[in-house]
Design a protein around this nucleic acid. Structure first.
Lengths: 190, 190
DNA sequence: GTCTATAAACTGATAGAC
DNA sequence: GTCTATCAGTTTATAGAC
């Protein structure tokens, strides 16, 4: 074991970090290759086109979240929601990285079809999971809110996304914490 | 009167609509010129560089909001907040346009300095105005919330931005309404 | 698997005619 | 003010040597 990471994975890692910071169209094969010390033409061996790379990238990003959420199954709804927010806190970095799909959502109309579909699938996963957890939390008396659970989930997710954009724009990472803490508190029962 | 709109204004209008839909880097001088039936080189006469156009664009966008907010001075805090949301509803279109600065915020690190500063100024305006209205509403008993008014304003603005991204990504404009309605309701006193 | 070389298209931008 | 012509730089992508 202890084998070194394969090039395909390292390409996805580099592309992910760059796109989280700059967006899909502002990142080129040349930018990605430089992080690995290879030429841009070599990337086409691993990913025939940028669309392939983009779609694979978002798919991996979603599957990673799926695994994280599955590992939370045994916790209480309140704990699960806290760990969900913690997962997002981990993708926010001081160098300007925020959630990959928040950045891609802003480029929606210019994304290649396959990439856009993966982004939509990511948000669907978030909405479905949040709806379930929030509903379960209310049934157990831990959460309190009016209206359909799905709408409460939309509000939670929208606030989470906006928090990352605002925190980065204001150069104040602490703002992400302030907003998400209040967002979780708003759901809690008195 | 009834003079036709000057070219500079029409260029700003075209650029605004295109960038709201596609983002800053995905819109070229050629794209903008085509909407007016002129060549891309002609645009440089009105705006020497793309940075000049971008900064002027966001400045106008902010000043327009400033005027809208000033016209709301006589209303109650609850009414002012409703009209604020209505102003945002007006920039959301079925063709994929959302708030100009929400799109630009996602491209933050790749924006020319002057454009980025104008975007930050736009959010500062929103935060300051919301903080004031929310605080006044609480003093009058119309709103209810815990903690600093500035933080409640951050949450409101973050939710508003995220709502536009989610509504567009899901191809469901109604989602913007659902989210913002709940966002306003959350502030209201029982 | 990675390289060099190259293509074809596009970008923001400038010079100068009209 | 808008045009044509042009530039230098960039992009994604391909062909073929090693």
């Amino acid at each position: 074991m202890s084998e070194q990471t394969d090039t395909r994975t390292r390409l996805l890692d580099a592309a992910e970090q760059l796109i989280q910071e700059r967006g899909y169209h502002a990142v080129s094969y040349k930018d990605i290759g430089e992080r690995l010390g290879i030429r841009n033409a070599s990337i086409h061996y691993h990913f025939p086109g940028k669309t392939d790379l983009g779609a694979a990238l978002v798919r991996r990003y979603r599957e990673r979240l799926e695994q994280t959420l599955e590992s939370l199954g045994a916790l209480s709804p309140a704990r699960r929601l806290e760990q969900y927010v913690a997962a997002y806190r981990r993708v926010v970095h001081e160098d300007g990285r925020i959630c990959l799909c928040t950045v891609l959502a802003a480029e929606d109309s210019t994304l290649p079809g396959p990439v856009r579909q993966e982004v939509r699938a990511f948000f669907d996963l978030n909405e479905d999971w949040l709806t379930h957890v929030i509903n379960e939390g209310r049934a157990q008396g831990a959460f309190q809110f009016s209206g359909p659970p799905a709408e409460a989930a939309w509000v939670f997710l929208a606030t989470l996304e906006g928090a990352m954009l605002l925190a980065r724009s204001s150069r104040d990472p602490g703002r992400f914490e302030s907003i998400t803490c209040r967002s979780v508190d708003a759901l809690r029962s008195a």
